[in-house]
Simulated scan of single mutants.
Amino acid sequence: MCTSLTYENSRGDQFLARTMDFAFELGGQPIFMPRNQTIKGDAGEFSTKYGFIGAGRNLSHYMFVDGVNEFGLGAAALYFPEYVAYQKVAPTDKLGLAPHDVTAWALGNAKSVADLRELVKTIQILDVPVALLGITTPLHFIFSDSTGDTAVLEATSADLQLIDDPVGVMANAPQLSWHLQNLSTYGTMQAAERPLHDYEGLELKTQGPGTGALGLPGDYTSPSRFVRTVYNKHYSIKTDNTPDTLNLLQHLLDSVTIPKGVKLKADGKSDYTQYRGYANLSERTYYMEPYDNLELQGVKLTDKMLTEWDTPVEYPLDHTPHIKALN
C-alpha cells in the first residue's frame, strides 16, 4: 500500500513523490534506462524511445515502479486490490502489457501527460503475473509532468483512459473518483483554530491551535491517507527552491509513512514504507530515501547519459543510518 502526491513550488517547479509500502522485500534501487531499448516484458516484447531514471529491479528484465523521464514526465505505480479488470488477451491492434511493465513503457514512450492520453489507447493491460511475487499485481498509476498536468490510469475495464486528478494525490483502493467524493466529508476542516461557543452559560476553554483539523483521520487505511495528504499539501507553506521543496515533501510523507509492525496483514506480515521516492520533474532528477537511511540519494538525468550511454546503470543505495555528531 502506498501514497503519492504532486507538488508545485512558488518557482513553478513540479515534483512527484511517493511512499512504497509493502510487506514483501522488493529490493528496489535507482536505475537509469537509456534511450531506444527493447524490453522483453512478461506479456511480450516492447520498445522504448526516451531515457528515464527510477526505482526498479532487474529480474527477467528491468521493471520500474516509479521515476521520471528526459521530458519531465513522472510516473508511480500503486497497489489497487480488488478493483482491476485486466484482460486475458490484447486485440490485434493493441500492445499487450503486464501491469508491472506499464511504468517503464509509459516513461519510455510518452513526453507528457497529454501525450500519454493518446498512447494509452494503443495498449491493453493483461492478466500476467510477476515472477517475483507469483501473482498478477493489481495496480493503478499516477502520472504528472513538468506543466503540472496530472492524471491517473485505472484498469477497471478494457477501455483504458486517463482520469484527471485535480488534487494531485493518490493512495490505494477504492477508485480515485471515490476518494475525491470522500473529501467532501472533510471539507470544513481548516488550518486555523476554530472559535468555541458557550453552551448553557458555560464558557468553554480553548484546546489550542489545531482545532480546525479536528476529525482529520489518523489511521493507515487508504482513504485516511488520501485525506490526510490532501489536507497537509493544501495548507503547507509554499517553498521556493529545490532543497526546501524536497524537505517539505519529506515532512508531508511523514504523515503517511508506515513504521514496521504497526500495520499487519491477514497473514501477520507487516506492510511498511520500504522507501520514499521523489522525482523533480522540472530538473529531471530522482531521489530515493530507504527505510533505514533518511538521507536523500539522487541521480540526475544528464545530457551525456542520454546521448552517450546505451546500457542500463544501477545505483546501489546506502542503507547505513546517517548520524551527525556535534561534539
Rank of each mutant, 00 (worst) to 15 (best):
residue 11 R to D: 08
residue 113 V to E: 01
residue 183 L to C: 02
residue 326 L to N: 12
residue 96 G to S: 12
residue 58 N to W: 09
residue 88 K to R: 13
residue 266 A to Q: 14
residue 69 N to Y: 10
residue 290 P to C: 12
residue 316 P to M: 03
residue 314 E to I: 05
residue 161 Q to L: 06
residue 106 A to Q: 08
residue 258 I to R: 00
residue 47 S to C: 06
residue 202 L to Q: 13
residue 258 I to H: 00
residue 106 A to H: 14
residue 260 K to W: 12
residue 316 P to L: 12
residue 160 L to P: 04
residue 179 H to Q: 11
residue 178 W to Q: 14
residue 249 L to T: 02
residue 51 G to T: 07
residue 91 P to I: 09
residue 303 D to S: 15
residue 298 G to H: 04
residue 6 T to H: 10
residue 110 A to H: 03
residue 6 T to A: 02
residue 275 Y to D: 00
residue 40 K to H: 12
residue 178 W to M: 05
residue 269 K to C: 08
residue 223 P to N: 06
residue 214 L to W: 15
residue 298 G to P: 14
residue 208 G to H: 04
residue 58 N to P: 02
residue 192 A to S: 15
residue 294 L to S: 14
residue 84 V to W: 03
residue 95 L to G: 06
residue 238 K to T: 08
residue 212 G to H: 04
residue 10 S to W: 13
residue 203 E to R: 14
residue 327 N to C: 03
residue 240 D to V: 04
residue 279 A to P: 01
residue 181 Q to S: 06
residue 259 P to E: 08
residue 28 G to A: 11
residue 119 L to D: 01
residue 155 A to E: 09
residue 200 E to M: 12
residue 45 E to Q: 15
residue 196 L to A: 04
residue 278 Y to E: 02
residue 217 P to V: 04
residue 148 G to K: 13
residue 204 L to Y: 05
residue 180 L to H: 09
residue 317 L to F: 13
residue 306 L to F: 11
residue 35 R to S: 10
residue 223 P to L: 06
residue 207 Q to I: 13
residue 190 Q to V: 05
residue 318 D to V: 05
residue 229 T to H: 09
residue 38 T to W: 01
residue 91 P to T: 03
residue 292 D to N: 15
residue 50 Y to V: 10
residue 58 N to Q: 14
residue 18 R to C: 09
residue 306 L to P: 09
residue 8 E to M: 15
residue 286 Y to G: 00
residue 17 A to I: 04
residue 297 Q to R: 02
residue 217 P to I: 01
residue 168 G to C: 10
residue 135 I to G: 02
residue 138 P to T: 15
residue 118 E to K: 11
residue 173 A to Y: 02
residue 188 T to S: 05
residue 20 M to V: 11
residue 302 T to L: 05
residue 71 F to A: 09
residue 217 P to Q: 12
residue 91 P to L: 13
residue 44 G to T: 00
residue 18 R to N: 11
residue 252 L to E: 05
residue 122 T to A: 08
residue 265 K to P: 00
residue 313 V to D: 09
residue 90 A to S: 14
residue 86 Y to K: 14
residue 145 D to P: 10
residue 29 Q to V: 08
